[in-house]
Design a protein around this nucleic acid. Sequence first.
DNA 1: CGGTTAGATAACCAAGCGGTTAGGTACAAG
DNA 2: CTTGTACCTAACCGCTTGGTTATCTAACCG
Lengths: 108, 108
Amino acid sequence: MDQLSATFAALADPTRRAILARLTEGPATVKELSEPFDISGPAISKHLRVLEKAGLITRGREAQWRPCRLDATPLKEVAVWAENYRRFWDASYARLDALLTEMKETEQ
Amino acid sequence: MDQLSATFAALADPTRRAILARLTEGPATVKELSEPFDISGPAISKHLRVLEKAGLITRGREAQWRPCRLDATPLKEVAVWAENYRRFWDASYARLDALLTEMKETEQ
DNA sequence: CGGTTAGATAACCAAGCGGTTAGGTACAAG
DNA sequence: CTTGTACCTAACCGCTTGGTTATCTAACCG
């Protein structure tokens, strides 16, 4: 699986996006991250592994804690990818695109 | 499944992203879209259904063809979502963040 | 009419996902 | 040393996913 696919797949789960949102406020332990959700610890562990493999978080070791820290660099690739489609959602460009399509059709 | 999750899930597949890229050049039939890939027609149909449910394409009817057209509006939400993390991948902000973390730690 | 083409649907399969419970490891505190 | 806490791994379960082949509909073409 390529990097971009892994990133999109990781972001497809609301729990994982909530974890990322929490990590914008600073590093957190697994316990802290699991508190907002009523799912088991192993389920959180799996989510964190997905995020780690996607390069969206890094994990340290401090005694019995495994603090998680946000690494947003893959999100830059997401933003860049999405920006390539800006002209297709931007209204003025959409009108221009429709005009060009119409011109192309009538010229044949 | 919420809209954003559906969009991310749809984008997690390279074949579907390639289909979207092709549609930036204009509408295309199912056959045209399937040509670059050596997977069966039904597999393409499934990908198109995923994209359609995510609101990323719309489909028309012209005789025996079902032309697909790009609808990039969900990608705007993706871009907006990712932009909220810009300060975490931007180098200068990263350095500022590290500085603030250091200050917070030493003040205790 | 018969044949061809575009495309969808159905049924199936292997693999992956999101969740669980049970049990194991590592460390700190009493 | 014992107990409790933080976290992980393993095994399992139901559902989804990405693919297949086979079959069906709908439209055009001769």
